[in-house]
Design a protein around this nucleic acid. Structure first.
Lengths: 225, 225, 225, 225
DNA sequence: GATGAATGAGGATTCATTCAT
DNA sequence: AATGAATGAATCCTCATTCAT
C-alpha cells in the first residue's frame, strides 16, 4: 500500500534491515526531527535508491507504522483470543505481554510509543486517531463480550474503557521509567538492554495497575469476622 | 531564573505576547522541530532582539515550561486545598477543572501535553521526569492523606496511584478528541475555538473516568432485595 | 583522511578550483573570520554541496593545511636532499626557493603564513605546534648532520637553531613587504601579481639574511695586510 | 587621537579597566573575531556608553595598539638608552627584558603579538608596517651607532638587521612555547600564570638566541694550543 | 551624558528531495 | 534499476552599530 514495488522486490533480509534502521530512527526522534539522511547513511544506502523504495518520508513513516502495529497485534493475538480466562487475569497477562514485548522489541516499542503520541506534524495529520483505533479494536471486542457476560460494568461505554485500559498500559511504562529513572531512549541509542529490572519488580507494578483497573482506588471493605 | 533581565524589563503586555506566541509554537511542534524563526516572525521581532531576551532555544523552553506549570498549578490550587470533600468528588471536580483549563487555555494545555511527552531531545534530557514530578507532588500529598483516612486503598504505593490518576487525565483528553474527532492542534493553529462540546457530554466522560478511577472496571455487585 | 569520498570523486579540475578558492579565503582571513559562504559563493557551489565534500569548516581547514604543507615540502625536497653543498649555500638557495615559492604560489604562501600564526581558535587548538614541527623536521635532520660534520656549532640545540632559521625565513618575507611597502593580502585579493621586484633586490635581501644566519651581526675581523 | 573626549573624562581607574578588558579580548582573538559584546559584557558597560568612548571597533583597536606600543617602548627605554654596554650584552638583557615583560604583562604581550601578525583585516589595512616601524625605530638608532663604532657589520642595512633582531625575539617566544608545549592563549584565558618555567631555562634559551644573533650558526674556530 | 533595547545581515550547518548518468 | 551529486531553503545563533529615552 505504501512501499513501492521496488522495495517489495528486495531480498527479505534487506527489507528487514531497512525497516529496522528506519524504525530505530523514528524511535529516537519524532517524525519531523527524524532524518532520512541518518537512516540512509546507517544503511549504506544510496539516497536515490531510498526514494525508489518509498516515495517520501511520510510514506515511509506510514508504512513503518502499519508494519509495527500489525507486528504488535500479531504478538498479542494469541493472548486476546483466549476466551476462557477471567478478564483480570487476562489484563495482568496482557501487561506482562506488553512488558515482554518491550523487552524483546525495545526499538519497535519505542517507535509505537512515539507514533501514539505523534500529534505535531502537519504532514501526518491526526495520526493518533488512526493508531488508537487500530490498537483499541480488539480490546473493545473483548470488553463488549465481558460486559455481556456481566464481568464488567455496563454503565460506561466500552470505547471509554478501552481508552482507559490503553492509557494504563502507558502508565505502567511511565511509572517504571520514572521510579527507576530509566531513560529508554538513551538505552535504545546505546543499544543497551532497555529495561533491566528484576522481574518481580515489574510484576509488582503490573499487578498494581491491574488492581487499580479492576477495583479502582477505593479502599476495599474490610471483611468482618 | 531563565529569562534575561531585558525580557523582564519589557512591558508586561509585550512579555505576554512573546510568551503566547512561543508557547503556541511549542504546542504545535515538539522541541526540536519548533522554530524560533517562526516565533520571531509572528511577533514581528528582530532575530537579535529575541536573543537578548533568552539566551537560546533551550532556555526559552525551560522558561515557558516553568511558566506553564506554575500557571497550571496555580489554577488547580484552590481546588486541591479544599480539605473537606470526598476524594472522588474532588476527582470529578479536578477533571472538570482540567477540561475547563483546556478550554480556557488550549494553547498552554497543548504545550503542557507536549512537555509531558517530550522524550526525544538530547538538549533537554529526561525532562519528563521533572515535569511529572512537579505535577504529581500535590496529588501525592492528597493521596497519602486519604490513604491515612482509609478512603483509599493502602496496598498500592501512592506514587503508582498518582501516575495512574494523571494518565487518566490524559485519557479523558484523548478520549474526547477521539470520539468527537477533534484535532486540537489544527484548531490551535487556525485560532478556532478548540473544544466546542455540549457541557453534559464533557461531564459524562469525566464522570465515566472518575468512576473507573474510583471503582475500576468490575461490574458492581447488584444490591439484593 | 579529511575530505569525503565525494570530494575525491570530483574531476581533478573541480577539486583544484575548490582548493584554490578555499585556500584563498583562508589566506585572506584567519580561521574564524574566514567565511564558508564566501567560498561557496565564489565557486558557484550550493551550500549543501560543500558539506558533501567536507564535513565542516574545521575538517576543510585541516585538509587544506595538510595539502599546503605537503605541497610545500614537495617543492623543497629536491633542494634539501642535495647532500654535497655547503650548508650556507644551501641556506641561500633555500631562501631563494622560498621567495620563488611565494612568487609562484602567493596564495598558498599566504595561507601557510596564516596557518603558522593561527593561535586564536578553540576548535583548532594549538595547531602551530603541529605545523611548526612538520616544517622543522627536515631542517633539523640536516642541521644535525652538519653539526656532526663540524660545519655548525654544537653548543646550541638543533631545535632552537631550526626555529631560528624558520623565523628568519619569515623575516625575509616581512622585510621585503616592509621595505617595498607591499601588501601581499591586497594583491592576493585583487588577483594582481604579488611581488614584482627586480630579482637582484630579492637576492640581495636573501643574501643579507643568510649572512646574518651564518656569521651573526658581529663585524668581521679585518684581515691584516 | 582615537578615543573620544568622553573616555578621557572617565576616572583613570575606569579607563584602565576598559583598556585591560579590551586588550584581553584582542589578545585572545584577532581583530575580526574579537567581540565588542564580550568586552562590554565583561565590563558591565552599556553598549551605548562604549560607543560614546570609541567611535567603533577599529578606532578602539588603534587606540589600544598605540597604548600598548607606547607602554612597551616605555618599559624598554631605560635599557636601550644605556650607551655604554656592549651590544650583545645589551641584546641578552633585551631578551631578558622581553621575557620579563611577557611575564609581568602577559595579556599586553599577547595582544602585541597579535597586532604584529594582524594581516587579515580589510578595515585595519597593512597595520603590520606601522607597528613594526614603531618597534624598530629605537633599535635601528642603536644599530646605526654600533655600526659606526665598528662593533656591528656594515655590509648589511640596519633595517634588515632590525627586522632580524625583532624576529628573533619572536623566535624565542615561539621556541619556548614549542619546546615546553605552552599554550599562552589558554593560560591568558584561564587567568593562570603564563610562563612558569625555571628562570635558568629561559636564560639558556635567551642566551642561545643571542649567541646566534651575535655569531651565527657557524661553528667557531677551535683555538689552538 | 549615559543607557540599553532594537536591528538585520551574516555566520555554520542540516535537510528532504530531484535528476542525470 | 540503481546511483549519488546537486540543490537551496531552513535551522539556531552572533555581531557591530544605532537611537530614543
Amino acid at each position: 500500500m505504501f512501499a513501492e514495488q521496488t522495495f517489495l522486490n528486495l531480498p527479505v533480509k534487506r527489507q528487514q534491515a531497512i525497516i529496522n534502521t528506519a524504525v530505530e530512527e523514528f524511535a529516537l526522534k519524532e517524525y519531523e526531527s527524524a532524518s532520512l539522511s541518518t537512516i540512509v547513511q546507517k544503511l549504506g544506502l544510496a539516497k536515490g535508491s531510498f526514494y525508489r523504495y518509498f516515495r517520501n518520508k511520510e510514506i515511509l513513516y506510514r508504512y513503518l507504522m502499519n508494519y509495527a502495529i500489525e507486528f504488535r497485534l500479531e504478538k498479542e493475538k494469541d493472548l486476546l483470543q483466549e476466551p476462557v480466562k477471567d478478564f483480570f487475569d487476562l489484563l495482568i497477562e496482557n501487561f506482562k505481554a506488553k512488558i515482554k514485548f518491550d523487552l524483546e522489541y525495545p526499538v519497535l516499542s519505542g517507535f509505537l510509543y512515539n507514533v501514539a503520541h505523534e500529534k505535531n506534524s502537519d504532514e501526518l495529520g491526526n495520526i493518533q486517531e488512526y493508531v488508537t483505533m487500530k490498537m483499541m479494536n480488539p480490546l473493545i471486542r473483548i470488553l463488549k463480550e465481558k460486559i455481556r457476560q456481566g464481568q464488567i460494568r455496563d454503565d460506561i461505554s466500552p470505547e471509554l474503557m478501552a481508552v482507559h485500559v490503553l492509557q494504563v498500559q502507558h502508565a505502567l511504562y511511565d511509572y517504571l521509567s520514572l521510579i527507576y529513572r530509566i531513560d529508554f531512549r538513551k538505552n535504545i541509542k546505546k543499544k543497551k538492554p532497555v529495561l533491566s529490572l528484576p522481574e518481580d519488580e515489574i510484576l509488582k507494578a503490573a499487578t498494581g495497575f491491574a488492581l487499580l483497573l479492576k477495583n479502582g482506588l477505593t479502599a476495599p471493605k474490610k471483611k468482618r469476622g
